[in-house]
């Protein structure tokens, strides 16, 4: 279980998170929605320790993330980045097997390649792709490789940062399906940030709406449409008028 208690984060005068409280139950898929620049990515990065919160606590399975051994803590996570964040200098299979080739639990290169090929197959990529470099792949293929890397060592918790941004609707649908299948199959706890409502409906068990640095609404995806929350209603229906100020 992931728990955020009163998390605050500011960058200079810009207060991004102003007391975020959120609980993601073990094995559930939580999707955080909200407009651009509302702090969704910052919240994710706070959990991973990439950004240090100014105040508040972040607990994973009841343990404060700041008090744990970084390597073993991060070893429980997988993350799919918005732009893929694949390493340009490494081939596709080396990207996927990056963690398997390093660290305390490292596998032999042959075994790591074998696992990488299996994970690539799981995300719908053929073995021929394994020896290409990221620059030789399309956007959709890069996302798939990023997804394969995120699940390479079967993490307990997977984060997805804007998984469908920049993809055409069909490819976005494929990625959404893959994410849902993989999360269910692995029994992992998932946390996704997106503003793509199709993704929300495809991926989420629970939804949280972040706005003005706080969670405005949270609940099961099935209750989202009848929530009666004006922020959530405006966001899911894409209205220009409402409590969320739209800059024209």
């Amino acid at each position: 279980m992931i728990e955020l208690r009163g998390v605050h984060k500011a960058f200079g005068a810009n207060r991004v998170l102003c007391g975020v409280d959120l609980v993601v139950p073990k094995g559930k898929s939580m999707v955080i929605i909200g407009g651009s620049g509302t702090g969704k990515s910052v919240a994710l990065k706070c959990i991973l320790g990439l950004v240090r919160p100014d105040a508040g606590a972040i607990l994973v399975d009841g343990q404060d993330v700041t008090g744990t051994d970084r390597e073993s803590f991060l070893g429980r996570f997988g993350m799919l980045f918005q732009g893929g964040a694949l390493f340009d200098s490494l081939s596709v299979w080396q990207n996927v097997a990056f963690r398997l080739l390093r660290g305390a639990q490292k596998s032999s290169p042959d075994r790591a390649r074998e696992i990488a090929l299996e994970k690539l197959r799981r995300v719908g990529l053929k073995p021929e792709v394994a020896d290409l470099f990221p620059a030789e792949l399309s956007g959709g293929m890069q996302k798939r490789v990023g997804l394969a890397r995120a699940i390479a060592d079967d993490p307990e918790i997977i984060f997805f940062d804007e998984p469908t941004t920049g993809l055409d609707p069909i490819m976005a649908g494929v990625i959404n399906e893959l994410i849902r299948e993989i999360v269910v199959e692995m029994g992992a706890t998932a946390m996704t940030i997106t503003h793509d409502m199709t993704s929300v409906r495809a991926i989420a068990d629970d939804v949280a709406m972040l706005h003005d640095g706080v969670i405005k609404w949270t609940g099961p995806v099935g209750e989202m449409d009848a929530s009666g929350n004006p922020y959530l209603d405006q966001f899911i229906h894409g209205r220009a008028t409402g409590p969320i100020e739209a800059v024209r």
């Binding site: 991973l48 320790g49 990439l50 390597e71 991060l74 070893g75 964040a85 390493f87 390093r102 890397r149």
Partner: peptide, 10 residues
Amino acid sequence: EQIDALVTLS
């Protein structure tokens, strides 16, 4: 974000 990716990969 490749440096962030490095961190998340321990």
